[in-house]
Amino acid sequence: MNAFRLAGDMTHLLSVVVLLLKIHTIKSCAGISLKTQELYALVFAARYLDLFIHFISLYNTVMKLVFLASSFSIVWYMRRHKIVRRTYDKDHDTFRHHFLVLPCLALALLINERFTFREVMWAFSIYLEAVAILPQLVLLQRTRNIDNLTGQYVFFLGAYRVLYILNWIYRYFTEPHFVHWISWVAGIVQTLLYADFFYYYIMSWKNNVKLELPA
């Protein structure tokens, strides 16, 4: 495992920790999109189907379990926890996320590495992950006061994607036959979705002003 991959996984983990900190400690999910969180739970469920069938490493298994457990518990907190769910900004989280699922599934049936259940589910999870941030970005645009933890959460998620691209470039030059169009194209699309957010996040940090996205 190269340094970019490890750093990518760690920023991904950090984003989850930041979000859990906000939800668990501050008991608030203000500014967090439940739609995006539901999509992530679906992404991990579809991608880690082989969790108990194909053992890769202890690191791999533990990380997968962490992402599965954290994504489902975040959804549970936002829907069921009696204090947290009251802080959910339902009126502004209106992205029709169900309409992302079917096209991703159709695309996975058409474009996959192999036409098997596991491979189609894997491709589906890659496509869905690429667009899962959209409801969150829309909600951020509609949020007047984006708190620091929410901004950091999205920043770490975006950083994870950038680091994964660097990891692929590294692996492409160091590992033979390392060509994976599906994840590369989807991963680049996913990263580009953050470009706008990154710009405003870095500007707010540089100018030391509160983060706000133009509508």
Partner: peptide, 10 residues
């Protein structure tokens, strides 16, 4: 398969 080693990513 070409994808096997790739699926060690999360």
């Amino acid at each position: 398969s070409s994808g096997t080693n790739f699926k060690d990513e999360l």
